[in-house]
Design a protein around this nucleic acid. Structure first.
Lengths: 211, 211
DNA sequence: AACGTACCGTAACGTACGGTACGGATGTTG
DNA sequence: CAACATCCGTACCGTACGTTACGGTACGTT
């Protein structure tokens, strides 16, 4: 997590945040083919201002991703005492959060953007997106997993490995299919069902006793 | 699986295959920003020929993806009789295949390409890539899973659902991290280790008895 | 009132690249 | 050889878009 990856929300003036919001909208609507002209028009600002504030097109895109990342504030859950029911509920909640995040339009759009840029230049978009999405949830989940282990409810060697299996069980092929353009219905019902199933399976693997 | 998604290898003349190979190389090297000129130069052909053969840039890219897909011939495994050891070995082999495929440079490149195009136009690239990668493996794995169920070695309601959990356990966050540009070492050793772990976990969830 | 600053709107520039046209070389058929 | 097809090499066209330049306006400061 380099200094450039996280950025405080108040580093952007309100007017700049309007511009970035417009850019994000256009990104969701049109993807990578947004033009500087379209952003200026949507945000009712001049192109000169865009270039003064963000340097160039890449700077605008980077700022947009950072802006979005700065909006995601994570409540920090850290439980010392925990029982089986609380543990299960916590894990299931994280599964819901993760699924909701990655199936959202903004997430799909920004992941597409970062993936597109990962091939060519060495822009920091990939790191920012990675840091903002899965890794953020992982940071929050880790103390829960550790507490579960200390309470003899979970068994694993590395919380890193446990989290990655959790990620796989929750996300499965949903993310890649969404990125590839498949129209998958992921409403509250589907998210809840998948989260419950993933939690069940996770506890089957890492839970102690009958889970 | 529409007719356009699969294409026989011999639908392309040898010279055309040379051109497509060159295009694939450039795609891996430079990603989406390959130009028609660069393809013509690399393949020692004229741009006019490119347009005559493939229509336009999108047609060339589509043909390239189809060409790559046509090269992946899958041996069809279909076992009627099966025991626990064979089942485990088969599943583990599929896990290795899947991991090897998705962590390959060509796979990463073509997935990036298809994801980039999924945002804007409705090009068939996404479907082709999906069909060629995970779904191809799924088709091969399904009879094995079914045989496992019939032999009372596995328990699941839907083989579709079982496969998707298998996919998640195998791939985890590797694919998205690769797509986002992270340099993950995935040699034979890592693939084998991950495949063994995923198989273990899969059997823990879906296996009957102590697995 | 005068000035500087910040910003909008728009016109213009430069260029990269998709796509087309044409000449010439090579090979094939009759 | 003649006629024709295929395809290479290259010059060229049109356009979209990133980037810059510039004139005009609103507003705060002195």
């Amino acid at each position: 997590m380099g200094a450039a990856l996280r950025r405080q929300e108040d580093e952007f003036t309100p007017r700049q945040q309007q511009v970035l919001t417009a850019a994000l909208e256009l990104l969701v609507e049109q993807g990578e083919r947004l033009t500087m002209t379209s952003v200026a028009r949507r945000a009712s600002c001049s192109k000169e201002t865009l270039y003064k504030w963000f340097g160039d097109r890449d700077g605008l895109l980077t700022a947009t991703v950072q802006f979005q990342a700065s909006k995601v504030r994570m409540p920090h859950v850290d439980r010392r005492r925990i029982d089986a029911a609380v543990l299960r509920a916590s894990i299931e909640q994280f599964a819901r959060d993760l699924l909701t995040t990655i199936s959202g339009k903004v997430s799909v759009t920004l992941n597409r953007l970062a993936i597109g840029h990962a091939g060519a230049d060495d822009s920091p978009l990939g790191d920012i997106v990675l840091e903002n999405g899965p890794l953020a949830i992982r940071k929050r989940l880790k103390p829960v997993l550790d507490a579960g282990r200390e309470s003899r409810l979970l068994r694993f060697d590395s919380s890193e490995e446990a989290y990655r299996s959790f990620f796989g069980l929750v996300v499965r092929d949903v993310q890649i299919r969404l990125l590839l353009g498949e129209a998958i219905e992921m409403g509250e019902v589907e998210v809840a069902r998948d989260a419950a199933r993933a939690t069940e399976q996770f506890l089957r693997i890492f839970g102690v006793g009958q889970g």
